[in-house]
């Protein structure tokens, strides 16, 4: 359908995407439960880095094969293969192939001024969220919002966005400090 094609075209123009993010978790009543900010790097297909630096620290890195979640406070890192269920996390969603995205979601499109919003409803009920809204401002992704079946929402705003700029490979790998407790997880 028209929304899916438009979204696919816009995503396919993006080979890399870098931005500062501000993430808010809201309960179904809209009350803010948690806020975190940091930076995201993304290179299609499948590679990304999500680095939270305030108010806590946490890094999630995917090299396209496996995803590592490193928590410096816990001195712990979990490593898991990129599998179906994990690919529905927003960062991976964006770095996945565009047609894969539009195959696994019902896509509808709406426009308010320069803000173009795509609402994605997953075909697979086992997804982490019930709906995902992606808002583009003059064809650049500016906002993501995920709502789960109980109405809890995660809203992520992107700022200082740079697209299709060279990103060093080292950005998508992680040197874990001595003594980090590494946990290999077979399933997510």
């Amino acid at each position: 359908n028209e929304g899916a094609e438009r979204l696919t075209r816009m995503l396919e123009q993006v080979t890399t995407y870098t931005a500062d993010f501000d993430q808010k978790i809201l309960d179904s009543g809209g009350q803010r439960l948690q806020e975190a900010s940091g930076q995201m790097w993304l290179a299609r297909p499948g590679r990304f880095r999500w680095e939270v630096d305030a108010p806590y620290q946490q890094i999630v890195v995917s090299d396209g094969e496996e995803m590592t979640l490193y928590d410096p406070d816990l001195e712990q890192a979990t490593v898991q293969p990129l599998d179906e269920r994990v690919t529905h996390t927003p960062a991976l969603l964006l770095s996945g192939s565009a047609d894969e995205l539009t195959e696994s979601y019902e896509v509808t499109r709406s426009q308010q001024g320069t803000a173009e919003t795509f609402t994605l409803i997953p075909n697979n009920p086992d997804t982490l969220f019930e709906s995902l809204k992606m808002t583009f401002y003059s064809e650049t992704l500016g906002r993501l919002q995920m709502t789960d079946s109980t109405g809890q929402r995660t809203a992520i705003e992107f700022d200082n966005v740079e697209q299709n700029v060279e990103i060093a490979d080292s950005r998508f790998s992680l040197e874990l400090p001595e003594g980090t407790d590494v946990i290999e997880q077979t399933r997510s």
């Binding site: 993430q23 978790i25 309960d27 439960l33 948690q34 999500w50 939270v52 946490q58 999630v60 979640l69 996390t89 927003p90 960062a91 982490l128 995920m146 789960d148 809890q152 995660t154 992520i156």
Partner: peptide, 15 residues
């Protein structure tokens, strides 16, 4: 009391 447990991207959220 209210305890929120959440993973990255607000995934796996439990309140």
């Amino acid at each position: 009391f209210r305890i929120l447990l959440s993973g990255p991207f607000g995934s796996g959220r439990s309140v």
